[in-house]
Nucleic acid binder design. Structure first.
Lengths: 134, 134
DNA sequence: CCGAATCCGGCGTGATACTG
DNA sequence: CAGTATCACGCCGGATTCGG
């Protein structure tokens, strides 16, 4: 191990000592697969600012199709990240909101966004450099 | 906004005030797409414990195909996350190691792993509950 | 030992149309 | 407004084979 930060070293150690290090059925990878879903985290962050209705979400995430919005919301609901509430109005309206579990992922995911925001320029430059060298 | 933690509220605000909130070409989403890659972060965490050679990586991540290993390593190299060093030995050997940029993602990604590790039981239970209700 | 090149099946994804 | 149903396409990713 090189001189990583204390905190980084801790995570690396935990990773290496995980009971199922890198098995395909490792439960952590199961959760991470959801996180890596194209739309899941985008919707979570959109719902983070408060409950929203179906078409409201469509407007705030313009490039999601209706199908994927429905499907992603159902998956998030299934995982207990999002709550769904139906109002018997006319026309009917449905409200989606983050559960406490859903809210709890905002912080760790925020760290990742912060990292991406801070480093996307560096990454972009590295890509240009790499491609020009080829 | 409900009573999220101070930190969570901060990330939500940043997200909503982002210059490109949710455009498809938002640079942050470009970076996040890489993170959401099936193998990228797995390899980063595997390399976090030190430089490794090609077949060494294959052994430590048994369920990755040779093709995806090559491809993912090249992408990571392109993004400046991984360095590649060739030794003119016989037989030749190639060593991959994290760059400082690559090491810098260990901490934010570690937070996510920690969250996944802490909550995968809750999520699993929520899924069973949801499926049985259907 | 470290790859590149090729073939190909499956599934995630979007477009479109229809329902209550 | 809030979905469901169906179809068709793209491309990711695995298996296999070949090369330096």
């Amino acid at each position: 191990m090189r001189n990583l930060s204390e905190e980084a070293a801790l995570y690396v150690e935990r990773w290496n000592n995980a009971p199922d290090g890198n098995a395909g059925d490792c439960p952590v990878r199961g959760v991470l697969d959801k996180i890596s879903d194209k739309w899941s985290m985008l919707l979570v962050m959109t719902l983070a600012s408060g409950p929203k209705r179906f078409n409201q979400l469509r407007r705030e995430v313009p490039d999601i199709s209706q199908k994927m919005l429905t499907q992603t919301l159902r998956d998030l609901q299934r995982d207990g990240m999002v709550g769904r509430r139906v109002f018997d109005t006319k026309p009917p309206s449905v409200e989606y909101r983050l559960t406490p579990l859903g809210e709890s992922i905002i912080v760790p995911f925020g760290h990742l966004i912060q990292w991406a925001s801070a480093n996307h320029n560096t990454i972009g430059a590295a890509r240009v450099e790499f491609d020009s060298a080829a």
